[in-house]
C-alpha cells in the first residue's frame, strides 16, 4: 500500500513538476526571443573571426528577403527552424543555392557560411 501510495505521490509530483517546467519554458519562450538565445552562442563561437560579430545581423542583411522571423517563419523561402538537413547540407545549400535561392559562396566568407549554418541548425523547432 505504502509503495503504491508512494508511487502515486511520486507520479503526481513528477508530472506536476514536469508541467511547471514546461509552463515556465513556454512562458520564457514567449517572453524571450529564442533567436537571441541561439545567436548569443553562435556570436561567441565566431568572435575570433570578427569582433562584435552578430549572426542575426548577417542573417538580416543576406537571408531575410526570403526567410522571415530570423528563420522561424515560412515565407517565400521555407521556415529554417527544424529543417531536416545536416549542417553540411545547409552549408552546401548556402554556398550553391537552389533555384530560386541564390548561392552565396562568392558573397560570403567560409566562416560566415559556417556561422549561418550553425545558427540555422541551432534554431529550436518552435513557432514564434
Amino acid at each position: 500500500m505504502y509503495w503504491s501510495r508512494s508511487r502515486g505521490k511520486f507520479s503526481i509530483g513528477f508530472f506536476t513538476a514536469m508541467f511547471i517546467t514546461w509552463l515556465s519554458l513556454s512562458i520564457a519562450r514567449a517572453e524571450e526571443d529564442v533567436t537571441e538565445i541561439v545567436a548569443a552562442e553562435i556570436n561567441a563561437k565566431y568572435q575570433s573571426h570578427k569582433e562584435n560579430f552578430s549572426v542575426k545581423r548577417l542573417f538580416a542583411s543576406r537571408c531575410s528577403w526570403c526567410h522571415q522571423g530570423y528563420g522561424l517563419k515560412q515565407a517565400d523561402g521555407p521556415r529554417l527552424a527544424g529543417i531536416p538537413k545536416t549542417k553540411e547540407q545547409v552549408v552546401e545549400q548556402i554556398m550553391y543555392g537552389k533555384t530560386p535561392m541564390p548561392g552565396f559562396r562568392k558573397q560570403l566568407k567560409e566562416w560566415q557560411i559556417e556561422a549561418l549554418a550553425d545558427y540555422i541548425k541551432a534554431l529550436p523547432d518552435v513557432e514564434l
Binding site: S54, K56, R57, L58, F59, A60, S61, R62, C63, S64, W65, Q68, G69, Y70, L72, K73, A75, P102, F104, Q107, L128
Partner: peptide, 24 residues
C-alpha cells in the same frame, strides 16, 4: 520588423543587401 545596421558590401558587388528581418 527589426531593423539592423548591415555591413557595407564592396562597391559594385551586386550582393544581397538588406537591413532588416521581419514577420508578416
Amino acid at each position: 520588423i527589426e531593423v539592423v545596421n548591415p555591413e557595407r558590401p564592396d562597391d559594385f558587388s551586386g550582393q544581397a543587401y538588406f537591413g532588416a528581418s521581419w514577420t508578416s
